[in-house]
Simulated scan of single mutants.
Amino acid sequence: MKLQTLFTERRAVSPVIGVILMVAITVILAAVIGTFVLGLGDQVGDTAPNANWGAEFDANGGENGTVTFTHQGGDAVEASELSITASDSTVFEAMNAAEPSDARLAAGDTISREISDNFGGTTTANLVWEKGDRSSILRSITITVD
């Protein structure tokens, strides 16, 4: 092979490279279209907020008490997307979480819930984020009531 002809060749890009590029573009387009057709693109924005939460239980010196979760930093969270649940369904019997003063909870804001008078024992209280059909436990605390 002559070295001079190698550097003076005037042909375009190899047909093999062209085919590889066309296949890559087709695969990328198929993946993007497939995500939106299957509805996976709708869930991209529905992720749990990235926030730090403190948890505290105040027994109030009796059989009942209050579980309080404090936003300690990170993303602000819509109060309507939060709930406080427990592993034992009798803990918060027919009681709703106390409404926070703001519609969005930011650093320093709290959300709390009182314990039912007839509960005694140990359970786990969870701060749960729910939006649409997605949910996530943001913080948990184990509480014991005598």
Rank of each mutant, 00 (worst) to 15 (best):
D117E: 07
A97D: 02
D88N: 13
E93C: 11
S112Q: 14
E93Q: 13
E99C: 08
T123Y: 00
E99W: 06
N118Y: 09
S83V: 14
D102G: 05
L127A: 00
A86G: 10
V128G: 03
G108K: 02
S83T: 12
I115P: 01
A103F: 07
N126I: 06
T124N: 02
R139L: 07
D75C: 04
T110A: 00
E78I: 02
T123E: 00
L138S: 07
T66W: 05
E93V: 11
A76H: 08
S136C: 12
R139I: 08
D133Y: 06
I143E: 05
I143R: 03
T66Q: 07
G65F: 13
S116W: 04
G108L: 00
G65W: 11
S136R: 10
G73A: 15
S89R: 10
S83I: 14
S112A: 15
K131F: 14
A103I: 07
L82P: 04
S80Y: 09
L138Y: 05
L82T: 07
A103H: 04
V77C: 08
F69E: 12
T85Q: 08
S89F: 15
A98W: 06
T66F: 05
E81A: 11
G132S: 06
S135C: 09
F69S: 09
G74E: 15
A125C: 03
S80T: 12
K131Q: 14
L127V: 00
S89M: 15
A103E: 10
K131Y: 13
T142V: 13
F92R: 05
G74W: 15
S112N: 11
T142M: 08
D88Q: 13
V91E: 07
A76C: 10
R104A: 04
T122Q: 05
D117C: 02
A79C: 10
A76P: 02
D102T: 09
T90K: 14
G120W: 01
D75S: 07
R104W: 04
F119G: 01
P100N: 12
G132T: 11
V67K: 07
M95K: 04
E130G: 05
S112D: 13
R113F: 10
M95A: 07
V67H: 03
A86E: 11
L82I: 14
S112P: 05
A76R: 12
Q72P: 06
S136F: 13
H71E: 12
I143G: 03
F69K: 06
G74Q: 14
V67Y: 04
G120Y: 06
I115K: 02
P100V: 15
S101T: 13
N96T: 10
T142D: 12
A125R: 01
S135V: 14
I141F: 00
T124L: 01
T123D: 00
A125D: 00
A86N: 08
E78A: 09
S101P: 02
G65Y: 12
R139A: 10
N126G: 02
A79H: 04
M95C: 02
D133I: 09
R139M: 10
W129D: 07
P100I: 15
T110G: 01
E99R: 09
S80M: 11
R134F: 11
W129A: 11
A97P: 01
